[in-house]
Amino acid sequence: MVLSRSSTTARDPLSDVLDVLGAHVARLTRMEAGGSWAFAFPLANRLKFVAVLDGEQWMLVPGQPRCRMKAGDVCLIGRTPYVVASDPEREPEEGTSLYPESGSDLARVNSGDGVAAIGGSIAFPDENGDFLLDLLPGFLLVERGARASSAIAAVLDLIGSEFRRDAMGSDIVAARLADVLVIEALRALSDDGDRSRTGWLGAISDPRLGRALRAVHRDLAAPWTVAALAEVAGMSRAAFSAAFSRHVGRPPLAYLRYWRLTLARTLLRKGTATVDEVARRVGYTSQSAFANAYRHAFATTPRSRSPVA
């Protein structure tokens, strides 16, 4: 059996990662709040987004400057606790009770005539979300007036229209639009022209590091070396390795290995290929080398996680 490259490999790193990881908004919640309020949410091993439809609110994240979000702004929240508030000085209440597991997805606070915002958790099958969470900082903001944010404004307008219409199927439509919103936010962050931005999104937007990342995601099975990737980037080996590690948080070959194994885990769980076929697909010519790398990364063997082993 030969795996189709076109079915598993996208044309750019962002599309490739989101497609392979199967990212989607698991639950879309809405808050309408008036008066004075503040709610604290704990650290969780997930990616979340918050977008303001109307009014203004504060986002307070440890280690980050206070962030005043206005209508049209969107933020992504990783592995960090945070507080959302009308007043940054107010002592926050516990916020998870606003949206109990079996409760309503709409929370109204103090008559709800000041701020309207939406939020949602981004789910990934199994543990694959760790790859993206490891690459993103705890907090990222896309302001309405930022470069490449026009698509975000259009999606938010559509989501707001769906809530106002309250027509049949509105919840489903709004959830699908939220998927698009998250992708557009990540796209805007990776294409905002800020060359000082660090992290994986900053590496994608960097002219030189971006070339190397695109090369890896286009041809994952190639026998990449640091020297070969540095040549693609048009940099010396030392400069490339230092810049890549500083932006991405992992050396080039460690990133390559982590992505190869993450893709391999996804393919194995689909059950459409053997362990040997998957190993070759992600660049391992030796099945034993693949098994050792897989065991080291995930504390299990490829066969124990593959229905066809």
Rank of each mutant, 00 (worst) to 15 (best):
M1S: 15
D16E: 06
G22H: 00
V25M: 07
T29P: 01
G34F: 09
G35N: 07
W37Q: 03
A38W: 04
A38K: 05
V50F: 13
A51E: 00
E56D: 13
V61A: 12
R68C: 13
A71W: 03
D73P: 08
Y82L: 08
V83G: 07
D87T: 06
P100Q: 15
E101C: 07
S102C: 09
D105W: 09
G112H: 08
V115K: 06
G119S: 15
G120S: 03
S121Y: 08
F124D: 02
L141G: 06
R144P: 10
R147P: 10
S149I: 09
R165A: 14
R165Y: 07
D179V: 04
V180M: 15
L181D: 02
V182M: 12
R195L: 13
R197Q: 12
G199H: 05
W200M: 04
G202S: 07
D206F: 02
G210T: 00
A221C: 02
V226G: 06
V226M: 01
A227L: 04
E231P: 00
E231D: 07
V232T: 10
M235K: 00
S236P: 05
A243T: 01
H247G: 09
V248W: 01
P251F: 09
Y255C: 00
R257M: 10
L263W: 00
R269E: 04
R280S: 03
R303N: 13
